[in-house]
């Protein structure tokens, strides 16, 4: 059974009052759940949030499954998100992703054996002048190359 930490619950309470309508608290609360739940939102967590907020399960589930930044299964400690949209794909983003997956021995969306990494292709990150752009958790990395990726991975413990 998943349960938010006291701070997490406090945040949900605050977000419920922060906007004009309590439903606006769903997205910030799901972010908090994801942070406390190994990078993903489980069905139990949806149950929990529904109970905390009084918002119907199906509604929370609709929101959860609509937005791509919420993960529906566990992710590694570092979620490496490679933009493969138009400009980044011009600069070998797709090859970079394939290369990275091969090095880590995982397919997209999987967690590496040591639990450190998940690799995903994502859509435009809004960093097209630095293509290819990669986001690791909340941090952007610009002009990535296979070599820079190797260094980055070795630095992420």
């Amino acid at each position: 059974m998943f349960e938010l930490s006291p701070e997490g619950k406090e945040l949900v309470k605050k977000e419920l009052a922060r906007y004009e309508d309590k439903y606006s608290a769903i997205i910030p609360s799901l972010y908090q759940i994801q942070k406390e739940n190994e990078g993903w939102v489980s069905p139990e967590a949806v149950d929990h949030l529904s109970e905390l907020t009084g918002i119907p399960h199906s509604h929370i589930n609709e929101v959860l499954k609509f937005y791509t930044m919420f993960n529906l299964k566990p992710t590694g400690k570092y979620h490496i998100q490679v933009c493969c949209n138009i400009t980044c794909s011009m600069f070998q983003a797709r090859e970079l992703t394939d290369d990275l997956c091969q090095k880590l021995g995982i397919k997209e969306g999987e967690v590496s054996e040591d639990g450190r990494f998940t690799v995903s292709r994502v859509e435009c990150l809004g960093s097209c002048d630095n293509a290819p752009a990669v986001q690791v958790n909340e941090t952007y990395h610009d002009n990535m190359t296979p070599e820079k990726m190797d260094t980055l991975i070795s630095e992420l413990k």
């Binding site: 069905p43 949806v46 119907p56 399960h57 199906s58 509604h59 589930n61 609709e62 499954k65 609509f66």
Partner: peptide, 19 residues
């Protein structure tokens, strides 16, 4: 009663209930 929702988006969208 809000049991039903449309989950996922685009042509992956599906009607369903929550478990």
């Amino acid at each position: 009663t809000n049991e039903l929702g449309i989950f996922n988006r685009g042509d992956r969208s599906e009607i369903g209930t929550f478990e």
